[in-house]
Nucleic acid binder design. Structure first.
Lengths: 201, 201, 201, 201
DNA sequence: GATGAATGAGTCTTCATTCAT
DNA sequence: GATGAATGAAGACTCATTCAT
């Protein structure tokens, strides 16, 4: 049985962990990952340096965890919104989903920067490999996008096409939101969506 | 009038410069930019450390120059090849051009890595701003791609669409050549090209 | 009277202690003392870090205890073997004894390394100071080597000479077994024994 | 041609180097190698930390150089003294030589500690491998000890026996000078020398 | 007795940049 | 212009030890 002592201790533990996550996130987003020293993180979090190494292998460990966690949140949120919308067409649902994510990043430019520079497919592959994790996400994805019929793309090409859709969206979102290049995101969106429709149509 | 001494001096200067460029390129490509110290560069180039700072502001200065120079070379080459092909249809020409670049990087994976991580639109913007520079490139581009009629995209949307084509190509090339994700480049190419045709059609 | 609870507790205590000894010995022998952190020991032993400090002052405390314990075992064993041999000549007995120890270390190179680097006369002095301890060993030594007549060395010089014999044996064994320097132990042995005979003769 | 500038610079370089050697030696001898941080060395030497790494790979690099350098000095000195003595008998010369070294260490206990803990045959092997180095030493050794006839040891066993003599001397010197164990060096010497005579006789 | 989270001083190492020559 | 010795701030990481529970 878990005693009151144990739970107290675990609470404290979680508190420390959270304060490190928060501090790191804040710093990564404002100064960038490379410009953030572990010293900065622990000072901001109010813990000792050793504590950091108690929980993380190095800076890239905490970076990965943060990026993965945040991106999961964003994706889940977008899926929930898409589901709630009750769109029964695959392409429309995809566009709605993408729009939702883009809108999120329009309001979180710094976060976008962090995600874009530090999120890799490899990271996702590793995360998904753990079956305990990500069951909810997989279930969600199935619910939202299972209606494959809506796409004109052949089944065997759909995965690769979806990969391209995602990569394209990422590139365009990053470039237009962060650099306003070649145009601000709101000018890019219609063309992006038109393109995506063509890709999936 | 330039004296013989002057030209000797200039030759020597150019020699030093070149040896630094060569050394840096070699190191960047093998070890990566971040893992290369300026010390490594000057040692390999056979010049003194101070000499580096005579010619470059810092490591990112020389990185930019190298990346820009190499990418210009690659693009020019691809344009020449496309021109020589004498394709009179815009989409076909674009596809041929892209294929040429992809093939180049298939044989130069390490270079692709370097370019992808260090080439930014900002860099190009700065470079193109100098009118002396890049006249040849602009002329080439005009010769190769001036036949806009071939595209079904509206004139006012063409720039943005081309931007997307380039971004998509970059993403897919990098991912499939370097990481073989989601599939090796040769499996991705047909779908990529089909997609580009849709985008421009 | 010792209750059953007491003995249970003592058993548990002894178990923890043993697992720490075993873990430390294993690690010292494979990685070396300096390269072994207390963290390694407790993890391997399956006890908490605090527990270590309940039983040992620091790493050198457990090192000393291990080294002393192991060396005592080895010496006792060699004495028993020598006794069993029933050699009635002091020099022959000594040589037999030394040979036994050398053979042991030939088969336990890593242990030899640990012992040689961490066994000091000071350690022995401290241990022997406790009269409770080492009575068995003293008795054994007397039984085995009491027949002093066999040596040509003057009584008052014998202790010092024996000290030299031991030091020489240690040096030579370590060097020739671990480093094969200046020659492998089997080449060194005849000369070592001839030398020892000269020293004691 | 070396300019005045060059030599000035080299002088300064040598000055820094020497101050590091001196500082390190002083600290190693007083606090021990393990207890000396590189920080201590550079602070004492009055140079920047980077300067240390300009000249040495790590602490063990400078340790090796110091130990090797000092030991070479001591040996050369002892050889010169032995030569000057004009002893024509191998054993007598050896004893004289060893006595000289022991006397040196009697007056430099801390140095003995440093040497004993950090001098290894491996170190010597590496140093002697460089032919430029150590020619003087080899020549000296030949001059001093070439008269092999004085020894009763068979030629093929002499090397190994000399190795033992050296190891024994080292062990006894260290133990009796530093720990006065089993007796002070002056009590040990006659017996040590008698033993060495037996070994070589 | 036992635990293990937390500590933070200590240590090594790198490297961009300067500047006297 | 060229050199390269010197710098020292900056950063990563370790680990013996403590102590509240």
């Amino acid at each position: 049985m878990a005693t009151k002592d144990d739970s107290n201790r675990n609470n404290k533990k979680q508190l420390k962990l959270n304060s490190m996550f928060d501090a790191a996130y804040e710093l990564f987003v404002t100064k960038g990952v490379n410009e953030t020293a572990i010293d900065d993180i622990v000072k901001k979090a109010g813990v000792a340096k050793g504590t950091f190494y108690l929980y993380f292998k190095d800076k890239y460990d905490i970076t990965d965890q943060i990026v993965l966690g945040e991106s999961t949140l964003i994706l889940k949120e977008a899926m929930h919104a898409t589901m709630k919308e009750g769109i029964d067409n695959f392409i429309d649902a995809t566009i709605f989903f993408i729009d939702h994510v883009i809108e999120h990043f329009k309001n979180n430019k710094k976060q976008l920067k962090l995600m874009y520079k530090n999120l890799s497919w490899g990271l996702y592959r590793k995360a998904i490999a753990d079956p305990n994790n990500y069951t909810e996400m997989r279930e969600l994805a199935e619910l939202v996008f299972n209606n494959i019929e809506g796409s004109g793309v052949k089944r065997e090409e759909l995965d690769k096409t979806m990969f391209m859709v995602i990569e394209l969206t990422g590139s365009v979102a990053y470039s237009s939101i962060i650099l306003e290049e070649p145009a601000p995101i709101d000018e890019m969106k219609p063309i992006l969506f038109k393109t995506i429709r063509k890709m999936l149509g």
